[in-house]
Design a protein around this nucleic acid. Sequence first.
DNA 1: GCATTCTGTATTTTT
DNA 2: TACAGAATGC
Length: 666
Amino acid sequence: MNPNNNLRLNKQQMEAVAVTDGALLIIAGAGSGKTRTITCRIAAMLEEGILPSEILALTFTNKAAREMAHRVRGLTGKAAQELTLSTFHSFGAKLLRESIHHLGYKTNFSIYDTADAVSAIKEAARDLKYSRDAVDGYKLSQLFSGIKTGRLTWDRQNDQFRELYTEYQDYLKSRNAVDFDDLIILPKMILSSKPDVLKIYQKRYRYFMVDEFQDTSSNQYELIRLLAKKSGNICVVGDDDQSIYSWRGADFGNILRFEKDFPNSREIKLEQNYRSTRTILNAANSLIINNQNRKEKNLWTGSDAGSFIELHYPEDEDEEGILIAEMIKSLKIREKIRYSQVGVLVRANTQTRPLEAAFLAENIPVKVSGGTSFYQRKEVKDLTAYLKVFANPDDDVNFLRICNVPRRGIGRQTLLQIRAYGEEKNYSLYSSLAALCHAADSPFPERQKNDLIEFHSLMEELGGKMKSGKKMAKTVRELVDKTGYWPYLITEHPGNDRIARFKYSNIMSFIDQLESYEKDPDVMDPSLQGFLNRITLITRDDDADADSQDKINLMTIHSAKGLEFDIVFLPGVVEGIIPHARSLEEDSRNIEEERRLFYVAITRARKRLHICVPSRRRYLRDIMDCAPSPFLTELPEEVLQHNEGAEVVEKEEADHFFDAIKARFK
DNA sequence: GCATTCTGTATTTTT
DNA sequence: TACAGAATGC
């Protein structure tokens, strides 16, 4: 490693880098150079001669994993391909691909995302002959997830769904499918019940690192503890003040458990903030101090006070959008900021709409992360479903999704018969269909049979090609072509071929992604499964080249964790949004988590922070008045500047500027 | 089997 | 508001 890299570390950071053996707990405040510290630490370990293949580093999001891989590469000058750097979930998936047979699944299992799980629950309910309106698939999926992860227990209220829960579990297993929770739970089960298997992994991995440790669930913690207890070399990095995923089972009590489980662990606190101005840090500190349930820390900075935190009071959300758009434009003109250095952070995805509209109107390029992700779009999901059935023909949920999409004459009645046949013989739907194509006891007339045969041979032909792992993109193009997906899109959207074309372009970019996956030199052994793993676990569309473009970043606070921007805008800082009404309804103690969320939002800003407090907002159908967020009263008045009127760049100045830009690109 | 109309209801946050 | 799912009709 270049020794200069060490020079940029402070005393505590250096200490953290130097301690590579044993257990280490790093409490890293917001902006305290955490990522730099742990990437340096990995680099130092490699320098020491520790093999990259012995290191397992887990992060919370794919974005963070990629960022870290990128930085390690930058430090060591080498692509550390052997290094395992992934999210908990993709690590779990990887482990299961190797070892799931110990639990009686086949290695080509499907991974069900939330939507798939909801369908599976509905199917299970169907099998139990529940009436359709007795089940709210979405709510049940949350309940089942809670039960599975141990976050919830059966009580009087939900006890009626116990049977369905069991049925759902059986359904998954018989279809050779796992859900997101299983990606953590099943590896944990394997490792805790099969000592030989545990040994294999303990031998393979001897150094462990967990980023965003405050957001690990108890199952995730248990998983890593099993692996790490042999070597004892484990470093976890976290900040209890930034724990914002408790609704997903995150438990920063793991920080305390860690100290118990690894009694010789050392603790290092990183408390110097390098990111924000003194003003911003001051506000953040005075906010978070209102939380009772936290580890004491003292985050400080050597930087200047910087400018005030500005508050704005637009009439409603539309005006708020316009106001923000105009401020951004004005900054662009007056201070020549880069758009990519602006973050607009919202509490809920629904808030993005008026903002997007305003940015569009002002021609501000924007990168939205969140909302319906690319992979959730119907057309992309359809294609993915085909791929999943290719990989795992027992995957009934995905079979159901595509067996008549585009329409090919396999409708409700036909399906009913396929089902009946399958139940009798204990076949999956796809196998039943295959059997019924030629079976002597087939109940179908000739014409119908031909529809089935045609579908089946298409699937067999393309499935065979896909499984070879070669020319997959080409095969998918063929699939789109042969199924007539484009004409299907047109008939689905009569008189609106813009939508059809948009959807088709999504399909094309999906195929492009497959193609670049196939050609990616970092992917050692491209396969259909590998690609499916990747796309079901990457929910946010974070294509790499979008980063290089100069766009402002519009996203939820949750997904902004770990990021930083020179200028941050927080729209909709009103009661009911932050803290979110729903969250408090659930449990009034959630106020502390909401406060942490606001804390995370504030601490994303390096230089400037704009907080917007609209006086009215849309709620469902109607418009209602709203009060400023109570958290605002927890910020010290002396760092705030209230702006009653909007300061706008004169239109002429703006036009002139943008004409100049346009001229340059002509 | 398929297209149309109608109805309800809502998801706050993400792997 | 907007979307998904059900009911209805052809």
